[in-house]
Simulated scan of single mutants.
Amino acid sequence: MAEILVEENFTRIDGADMNVILDILGDLDLEAEPTAPRRNDRGKNWNLTIHWLRRGPIPEDTLTGLPAALAKIKDHFLAVGKIPPAQLILRGPDEGLLRTL
């Protein structure tokens, strides 16, 4: 079972991009799967939204690894000539905001 869900954004993220994102998050020992978009994000700047599915605190090693993961994701988008996400939004199981990077 996935620990996190990564919102798809069909305007910004294609299948190859999503695979890169899932691999980068997998390097944090997170089992991640894509999920349907839940918000309309069509502006110039866009956010990568991740949903944490477990109740309880997020492990410290995950929290400390997320900034580097976001940097790698941004590097990927720049390398393929696309606009990278402006932020990473981490939402909890109840859709509440847990963290913004």
Rank of each mutant, 00 (worst) to 15 (best):
E7Q: 15
G65M: 06
A36R: 13
L22I: 14
I89H: 02
L90N: 07
N45C: 01
N9L: 09
E7F: 01
G96F: 08
F77C: 09
I73A: 01
P37E: 14
G65P: 08
W52F: 11
V6S: 05
R91M: 09
D17K: 07
H76D: 03
G56V: 10
G56H: 10
L70D: 04
F10A: 11
R91Y: 01
P57R: 12
L90I: 13
E7D: 12
L25D: 04
A2G: 00
P37L: 06
W46G: 10
A2K: 08
P59Q: 09
E31R: 13
I24G: 00
T35M: 15
E60D: 11
P34G: 07
A36K: 13
G96A: 13
G81M: 01
L78Y: 01
I21N: 03
A36S: 14
T11C: 02
M1F: 05
V80N: 03
R12G: 01
G92A: 08
L25C: 06
E33R: 14
P59F: 00
F10P: 08
G96K: 13
K44C: 00
L70M: 14
P93N: 11
P84G: 07
Q87C: 02
I13N: 01
L5C: 08
A68P: 00
I4L: 14
T64N: 12
W46S: 11
R38Q: 15
N9W: 03
R12Y: 14
P84T: 01
T11S: 05
P34C: 02
T100N: 05
F10N: 12
E33W: 08
H76P: 02
G26H: 09
G96I: 04
L90S: 06
I13A: 03
D17R: 05
L5D: 04
E8P: 00
T49W: 04
A2L: 00
A32Q: 02
I50L: 15
L63V: 08
L22V: 11
I50R: 00
I13T: 09
I13F: 05
D27M: 07
D17I: 07
L5E: 13
L70N: 06
L63C: 07
N47I: 01
V20M: 13
L30T: 02
A79Y: 00
A32D: 02
D75L: 10
D94R: 10
R55Y: 12
T62M: 09
T62F: 03
K74H: 04
G65Y: 03
G43P: 04
I58M: 15
K82A: 11
G56A: 11
L5V: 01
L66Q: 06
D41M: 13
T100V: 15
E60N: 08
L63A: 08
M1A: 15
E33I: 03
L66P: 06
L66K: 06
K72P: 00
H51Q: 14
N47D: 15
D75S: 15
R99K: 11
T49K: 12
T35S: 14
D23G: 14
G65D: 04
R54N: 11
P93S: 11
A16P: 00
V6A: 05
K44W: 12
P67I: 03
F77M: 10
L101C: 02
R54E: 15
E95R: 13
L48V: 03
D41W: 03
R38G: 15
L5I: 05
D14Y: 08
N19Q: 15
